[in-house]
Design a protein around this nucleic acid. Sequence first.
RNA 1: GGGCGCUUAGCUCAGUUGGGAGAGCAUCGCCCUUACAAGGCGAGGGUCACUGGUUCAAGUCCAGUAGCGCCCA
Length: 952
Amino acid sequence: MRPRMDKTFNPQNIETQLYQEWEEKGYFKPSGKGEAYSIMIPPPNVTGSLHMGHAFQDTIMDTLIRYKRMDGNNTLWQVGTDHAGIATQMVVERKLANEEGKTRHELGRDEFIKRIWDWKAESGGTITKQLRRLGASVDWDRERFTMDDGLSEAVKEVFVRLYQDDLIYRGKRLVNWDPKLHTAISDLEVENKDKKGNMWHLRYPLADGVTTKDGKDYLVVATTRPETMLGDTGVAVNPDDERYQDLIGKEVILPLVNRRIPIVADEHADMEKGTGCVKITPAHDFNDNEVGKRHQLPMINIFSKDAAILPNGEGYTFDGKELSLDAPIPADLHNLDRFEARKAIVASFEAAGLLEGIEDNAMTVPYGDRSGVVIEPLLTDQWYVRVAPLAEPAKKAVEDGEIQFVPKQYENMYFSWMNDIQDWCISRQLWWGHRIPAWYDAEGNVYVGRDEAEVRRENNLADDVSLSQDEDVLDTWFSSALWTFSTLGWPENTEDMQVFHPSNTLVTGFDIIFFWVARMIMMTMHFIKDENGKSQVPFKTVYVTGLIRDEHGDKMSKSKGNVLDPIDMIDGIDLETLVQKRTGNLMQPQLAQKIEKNTRKTFPGGIEAHGTDALRFTLAAMASTGRDINWDMNRLEGYRNFCNKLWNASRYVLMNTEEHDCGANGGDMQFSLADRWIQGQLHKTIKQVRQHLDAYRFDLAANTLYEFTWNQFCDWYLELTKPVLFKGNEAQQRATRKTLVSTLETLLRLMHPLMPYITETIWRNVAPLANIDGDSIMLQSYPAFDESLVNQQAIDDLEWLKQFVVGIRNIRGEMDISPSKPLSVLVKNASGEHQRRMDENLTFLQAMAKLDEITVLAAGEKGPASSTALVGDMEILVPMAGLIDKDAELARITKALDKAEKDFARTQGKLSNEKFVSNAPEAVINKEREKLEEFRLAMEKLKEQKATIESL
RNA sequence: GGGCGCUUAGCUCAGUUGGGAGAGCAUCGCCCUUACAAGGCGAGGGUCACUGGUUCAAGUCCAGUAGCGCCCA
């Protein structure tokens, strides 16, 4: 297919069609040839849709993959999605409620899971469809899903082996409990919000007639959660706090429940804060839990799974054993929700005269990001991975440079987490996920195995022993942690494992270094060994991206209504639809008005279509050093214009080469200075772009391409081909046509990884002219730098030509002489080199500066009163007669002279500094001397010129 | 409180081993010149957050201050 090229660039007309063709023809598959290069996509949430962060990361991954593919590697970009336990379960639950008015419990577990699979088949492909719009060259035939058979097999295998290695255990510990969803959740799913709350000061009477230093028979503890006092098992004071020294080891009588609890000394108590006394509730607060552990206080759980008050506190020791301890709770509190209980307890304290006071208090409260309710730290039975032993090799791999982070400072973040690592709670009280491969008998003994039959066999359990499988499923991150190898067919030792593992580059956000990156490293190094038994790393480089924020630097979020959808930037969206999209389905509908107002203000005309290539190029251009990006629509528009520029430049090339002899089959060719120059510039560009891509500096790569394309190729080279194509002889035309075609063809290949669609479209038109027979630019080789094609003489000559042309354009601009008015100019002090350059490039000079004649003045000849420009030590004179305004010219000269004088003075100052001359390197000094001479010359000429004009 | 990062033109950002401050957009002139008005040609615009130090020379290296952001507690 050779696409047509309209006058303006219309991305909609080309993108989808090209992508389908690429996919159908299997261009995204590994070639099977060359050195392997693989990237494993961070699997997006199957319920999700593409956001700017995905677009950013996917652009970078695709750029790398396309670059390596063209450069001859056997490339695999592995794609897939994760099953997103909670999110997916909730989506289907909601659907079930809306459509059938049923809960999942009414449906039953098996039927509900079946419904999830139905949903997935129907609606689970949103994000992968969007990924296609971005041009992502992933191998779709290998698409994986964390719940599919192969990956589930890997999950089971890993669980069983870790258990056998004593790296997985079951225990009763504190977790982030979501009282609405009835499951443990990970820290990542907890949103900490700053809230205004209260600090209650409660009196705890001292036992045994003890009094404080100032004679009081009670202590005052300050707390933000009075309701948890029912589970207090201690009061802590700071060991250095003189106020309470005598009381350490004594006891208080816990009000309402009349339990004696000890006063302990612990650093956790902050002398500056409140009264310096804190209540310790080890079963309901993470900090208190640590304190309790240090002082061997019992844990007393007072909450049900709904976070309502129990009739009796449940006591446990820190090794999870039940404690027979009497912790009754007053009957009027039973079954009260935690916030109701708070009111009731505060009221009771007040009634008993034990409420010392209430203060306002700013605090951070954890909310479940899915349920929106306050998370309760709760003691529950969960499965844990013992992480410390796994962390050691994982740390070492980064220390030794086996895995490198780009940018490097993120290694600190990695180490800080790995050095203070907590065991990982991997079980979730959900239905959707990998069911934990553990079975219990009637006595509560636990057996772990790949299936029930294996459990019976391994443990000699008769068929009549009844076993029931653990109801819980595994954290989604557990299966994600296996992603790099489970997707390649592990536990089978597949050929893919041998070829594509370890993968090369992981592209991800800094926010999941802990949750995902570190865990992948640990899991991979534990399970995957090379032929010598050495642990393999999952990837060699981790490229960490920053966050994409809105134009004011605010995080994009639904509730702020500042989310930008990458697809909207590609296809465009009208204002009304955008407003609807941003204000619909809000958790807090009262925000709608404000969001609407802001949206109308920011996007009065909606968002125009910019196309995928412009979006990708913008993302690449803004991808510097892993820091956050403040999204700028103006940049996007600028790069859309850039696409249009490339498009039209290509049209120019095609118009002048199609149906002409472009020298593809030889013939006489006489290359112009411009031809030789642009080839050199192109190769310098190739070298730089490769360097930048290799260094993950996509911003610099994009800038280099932009600069070459617009400022060299379009602004100078294309203009310089016009005189040749209009007036040159056959050999000159043939040479220039050949250069036009080959430069553009190479440039397109160089750009392709960043802008796949536009380059493919143009390339298919250009390639035949260069005698290249290929179906797709994707499969062509990436341009290689050839130093022999960089012609320094041509570069110097063309720089001279530019100076000449710009000098005249300058005069035109400042003197208001129309660019269309031809000028005759004179040159003074034209040495041999200047003369040669003029002789060789007269046509170029005439065309580019719109000149009639150039007259060379003899030595000593003054010439008429003129406005002048300098090219090195040569002076160009544009005669003033009838053209130039005396005052304007004087103003222009004065300004230029000022600048020259300043430059001269500064340079002279440097050179007359004895210390500079004796310390600075020779090259620097020489450069300064050259500059001085240049400025001196300019001053001289300008003064002379000024005098001439003044005397008129 | 500990750690990391940021502060450069009106806006969004580059600035490699220290050696004449850059880009895009925006602004101001002139131009519908047969690739492109999503364009061409030209111009203006910066105490490189602040203070001190090292150096012949600092946006760049060091120390401190202020503001902002992130991670951890």
